[in-house]
């Protein structure tokens, strides 16, 4: 039995359509038009204890809705979620006591009060005893420097500091699983770095399973060994980062440095995607032509000084996903 089991999960929302103009406004007053939208469309996967899994996909792909169903906030239209064998929808209290959740766009901290006040409240809600509380604060101080901001009112914290506060608040009760919804959104490089470091640390030290949704490719590259790619509510890819890139972007770039400027470079099996004065990028499908073959072909016709082969990165892969047509 996997730690987190998601089976055939579906979520539909009813949306009211607004009609245009004054006449439309009056008619909507009496006859609102409604239709259904599938935000999450039949997704299934398992996650084992101790994994760090990245959820990626374009805006509105259904990432947040999926996370909200896994954490028990939303009730699924169909399908089921089990964490450690228990459904958060049937037995919410038993499940959420072991979860930590952070939404990057929102805070669970008390805006007007000092950060420590929220911690004190959580200490009572989660029945954290004094020893565990002290140990956790000490641990969180080591990775997040939490004591430096604990006495500051939350509204005076910078975005990065606030996120550190939110992460600490989510970890106070030593959850076995941590859900992070865009934890690095809007943060500067340094803050991002400290948050990634935090995620790595708690995963290693406490064995916490982490699921994070993000748009930040840096997060994915640094943290996630496994990726789940969602688009239009469906899982498009699920697997290790490298193999997904391999599958989604099965091409290479050949960067050619010319000895002298040359126009109209051409090869039947490769495509010129970018040109600088002396540098040309060829994109080629490695199943059609080997890199060595391409290099030797090109060096016959053009004055080449140097060549290098570039692997497609995660950014290329994301672009591929966005381009992919939807099949309903």
């Amino acid at each position: 039995m996997a730690f987190l089991e998601v089976e055939n999960l579906v979520k539909e929302f009813t949306v009211t359509k607004k009609k245009e103009g004054l006449k439309g406004a009056v008619s909507s007053l009496f006859h609102p038009e409604k239709y259904k939208v599938r935000a999450v469309d039949n997704i299934s996967f398992n996650i084992e204890q101790g994994e760090i899994v990245g959820f990626i996909g374009p805006n509105g792909a259904g990432k947040s809705t999926a996370v909200k169903m896994m954490t028990g906030i939303l009730h699924p239209t169909m399908g089921s979620v089990k964490i450690n064998g228990i459904s958060p929808h049937k037995n919410r209290k038993a499940v959420v006591g072991k979860l930590g959740v952070v939404f990057g766009q929102r805070t669970q901290l008390y805006w007007d009060l000092r950060l420590g006040e929220t911690f004190e409240l959580l200490k009572r809600i989660y029945k954290i005893d004094d020893k565990m509380y002290k140990d956790n604060i000490k641990m969180l101080d080591e990775v997040l420097n939490i004591t430096e901001i604990i006495d500051t009112p939350v509204r005076q914290l910078s975005l990065g500091q606030r996120m550190r506060g939110d992460l600490a608040a989510a970890m106070l009760h030593s959850p076995t699983m941590l859900f992070l919804d865009e934890p690095t959104i809007g943060l500067d490089i340094e803050a991002k770095h400290s948050i990634r470091n935090f995620i790595k640390q708690i995963n290693e030290r406490c064995g916490t399973t982490v699921i994070l949704t993000t748009h930040d490719l840096g997060d994915v590259e640094e943290l996630c060994k496994r990726l789940i790619v969602i688009n239009h509510g469906k899982i498009v890819e699920d697997g290790p980062l490298n193999s997904i890139i391999e599958r989604m972007a099965p091409y290479r770039y050949l960067v050619v440095e010319l000895a002298s400027p040359h126009h109209n470079l051409f090869h039947p099996a490769a495509e010129v995607v970018k040109t600088e004065t002396l540098r040309v990028w060829f994109k080629f499908d490695k199943s059609r032509i080997a890199a060595t073959e391409l290099i030797s072909d090109l060096s016959k016709t053009y004055p080449i000084r140097d060549v290098s082969v570039k692997e497609p990165d995660i950014e290329d892969m994301i672009m591929e996903i966005y381009k992919k047509p939807v099949i309903f």
């Binding site: 607004k18 103009g21 004054l22 406004a25 009056v26 909507s28 007053l29 009496f30 609102p32």
Partner: peptide, 15 residues
């Protein structure tokens, strides 16, 4: 003025 009117009418519950 017209925009305010439209916004207001769209709140059918409040009406």
């Amino acid at each position: 003025a017209k925009m305010k009117l439209l916004v207001f009418l769209s709140y059918r519950f409040e009406v």
